[in-house]
Amino acid sequence: MAIDSKVVAQVAHLARLKVDQADSDALSSRLNDILAMVDQLQQADVTDVAPMAHPLDVTQPLRDDKVSEPDIRDKALEIAPAAEDGCFLVPRVIE
């Protein structure tokens, strides 16, 4: 399954990455190398094999419904790239 610069552009958009036109071909070719290696997966016989999302067959421990977290706004806003009036700032969002 080879991918070209058009697919790279679509995927890059989904991942919110900028791909310069100049690098696009080189990037496509690198990605194709990786995908060619990954394509070995198609050799495997996976009939009736359940996908394994986790290394261990265990279930989720649940947390008691208690308020335990302090207000850390000042700490959080201090390391924020842009903040004002207690909020993080982004360019205007148009819905």
């Binding site: 419904d65 308020v67 335990s68 850390i72 706004r73 009036d85 207690g86």
Partner: peptide, 27 residues
């Protein structure tokens, strides 16, 4: 109407000052 959030121990907020009920996980 739980006391805390789904994945963190932050208080469920109504009308609190912005970002005062957002924990490390929520952020």
């Amino acid at each position: 109407n739980t006391a805390s959030k789904l994945f963190s121990g932050s208080k469920l907020s109504t009308g609190a000052e912005p970002n005062t009920q957002a924990s490390l996980v929520d952020l």
